[in-house]
């Protein structure tokens, strides 16, 4: 099978791409019309990332791409050849929940739990971006993630708690882990 290379057009058949998923190099075959979330769920069998609306409106499919939160349902897998994808499966560290995961438990920040992976990945992206000054900013910056159970008060309480503790060790994804991710090294 052909590997995707620049300036080499491909047809509608599968082409090989490489994704660094949670620090692990994964080669998969995808047709150009496969969305990133379908590649994650159906080709990599990683079911933590959810599909809610499939239109970029609900945020359930949020992952970090090269460290930035994005909707994986409205981007094509072929666009991310060589990119670093972080999913909910890569958030805990050696069996230890990330402080944001723990905060979701402590604040009872879910009911059905379907939107939770997207909420947590979006919250991690928000912490990395560093644009939030106050709780209003945080609510605005989380508006791309819907919760049909309307657990918003608890979700935002969990994220705000971690936002206020983000200079403590281990709250942001550690620099070491980020460096590993950026270098394509194995994190787990």
């Amino acid at each position: 099978m052909n590997k995707l290379t620049r300036d080499t057009p491909v047809g509608t058949e599968p082409v090989e791409i490489t994704l660094f998923v949670n620090g692990e190099e994964r080669r998969i075959a995808v047709e150009p019309d496969v969305t990133l979330v379908d590649a994650i769920r159906d080709r990599l069998d990683m079911l933590g990332t959810k599909v809610g609306c499939a239109h970029g409106q609900c945020g359930a499919c949020t992952v970090l791409i090269n460290g930035e939160r994005r909707y994986s349902c409205i981007t094509l897998a072929v666009m991310h050849d060589g990119h670093h994808i972080q999913t909910i499966e890569g958030v805990e560290d050696n069996g230890q929940l990330h402080p944001l995961q723990q905060a979701f438990i402590d604040h009872d920040a879910f009911q059905c739990g379907f939107c939770t992976p997207g909420q947590i990945m979006s919250g991690l992206g928000l912490l990395r971006e560093g644009h939030v000054q106050n709780e209003d900013d945080m609510r605005e910056e989380m508006s791309g993630n819907l919760c049909r159970c309307a657990a918003y008060q608890h979700i935002t309480a969990a994220i705000w708690e971690v936002h206020e503790r983000q200079d403590e060790p281990g709250v942001r994804l550690s620099e070491q882990r980020e460096e590993l991710l950026a270098a394509g090294g194995r994190v787990r």
Partner: peptide
């Protein structure tokens, strides 16, 4: 989705 071909353009001239 209707199938389509795809290319990653390397520069403006090729795009």
């Amino acid at each position: 989705m209707n199938p389509f071909g795809y290319v990653q353009a390397g520069n403006d001239v090729s795009a």
